[in-house]
Simulated assay, not measured.
Amino acid sequence: MAAGSGPGARELFAEGLLQFLRPAVRQLDRHVHSVRESQVELREHIDSLATELCRINEDQKVALDLDPYVKKLLNARRRVVLVNNILQNAQERLRRLNHSVAKETVRRRAMLEAGGYQGK
């Protein structure tokens, strides 16, 4: 085996890789959470606007056909809900990945420490 390519070097590389990935996964999780909050807020605004358009349509003495606009808003709301579901699934996968990275980091650190103590 070549120098520097033994189990210790691989463990150090894996530990470094895990340390590198953890902040990126956490940052991505925060961004997904922020987007999901924005999606919920957008959905609430769409609901409010659709309700207001229906109310205006009912109150108007002049016949304005706002139904197509209400339907467009409801279609947009449906798409927002779909995107939110996709984001929720992605965030759950990110949480599981973050948990796995943390668990693997603890396991590898314990292995490195055990290996270090055995060599003394």
Rank of each mutant, 00 (worst) to 15 (best):
5 S>G: 07
6 G>L: 14
10 R>S: 14
13 F>L: 12
15 E>K: 06
18 L>W: 02
20 F>K: 08
21 L>G: 11
21 L>N: 09
27 Q>E: 10
28 L>M: 11
28 L>R: 07
31 H>M: 05
31 H>Q: 15
32 V>H: 03
33 H>A: 07
35 V>K: 11
35 V>N: 05
36 R>M: 10
40 V>Q: 10
41 E>C: 07
41 E>V: 04
42 L>S: 05
42 L>P: 01
47 D>P: 02
49 L>F: 15
50 A>C: 10
52 E>H: 03
53 L>W: 08
56 I>E: 14
62 V>R: 04
68 P>V: 01
71 K>F: 10
71 K>D: 14
71 K>P: 03
74 L>M: 04
74 L>V: 12
75 N>I: 05
76 A>Y: 13
76 A>C: 04
77 R>K: 10
77 R>L: 15
78 R>K: 04
78 R>V: 14
79 R>H: 13
81 V>A: 11
83 V>S: 14
84 N>V: 04
90 A>R: 00
94 L>A: 02
99 H>N: 03
99 H>F: 09
100 S>L: 08
100 S>E: 06
101 V>C: 12
105 T>R: 02
105 T>C: 01
106 V>G: 06
107 R>T: 09
110 A>D: 15
113 E>Q: 02
117 Y>H: 10
120 K>Q: 09
120 K>S: 07
